[in-house]
């Protein structure tokens, strides 16, 4: 008999140097029933990868390790290779988008986002 029940909640890692943005991402995702882990920048994120990890939402411009660096690191990490990565940024320049895409990002959202927009993207990506 299968007795132990493991939490069905999915964990999402949000990476942003702005505490306000992290707070708003957490707000939107927690309201939608996800668990959220916050990190201040790419390096911080790599140091606290939750397991299992369902999705990463990351900013691009961050000190220490920026978003592109983080995407590349995640893509090289066996546990995170296929974790979808959503870029959440103020940037909208085509070149930056291309860079993130090539590094292995899954989707791109320009700030400011509305909570329902973010959760719609997350749901679509997680299937």
């Amino acid at each position: 008999m299968v007795e132990k029940v493991i939490s069905m909640k999915r964990t999402i890692l949000t990476v942003d140097d702005s505490a306000t943005v992290r707070q708003m991402v957490a707000y939107a995702l927690k309201s939608a029933g996800y668990d959220v882990v916050e990190a201040k920048n790419g390096e911080d994120a790599l140091g606290r990868l939750p397991s299992p990890l369902s999705l990463v939402i990351t900013d691009l411009n961050m000190p220490v390790m920026n978003g592109i660096g983080l995407i590349k690191a995640l893509r090289a990490h066996p546990d995170a290779r296929y974790v979808p990565i959503v870029v959440l940024t103020t940037e909208s320049e085509a070149a930056k988008k291309q860079e993130a895409r090539a590094a292995g990002a899954t989707a791109w959202i320009v700030k400011p986002f509305r909570p329902e927009q973010l959760t719609a993207v997350v749901q679509k990506v997680l299937g």
């Binding site: 999705l55 546990d79 974790v83």
Partner: peptide
Amino acid sequence: REPEHFAFLCG
């Protein structure tokens, strides 16, 4: 779909 599974598979 449900990408966690593929991450777990490969990791």
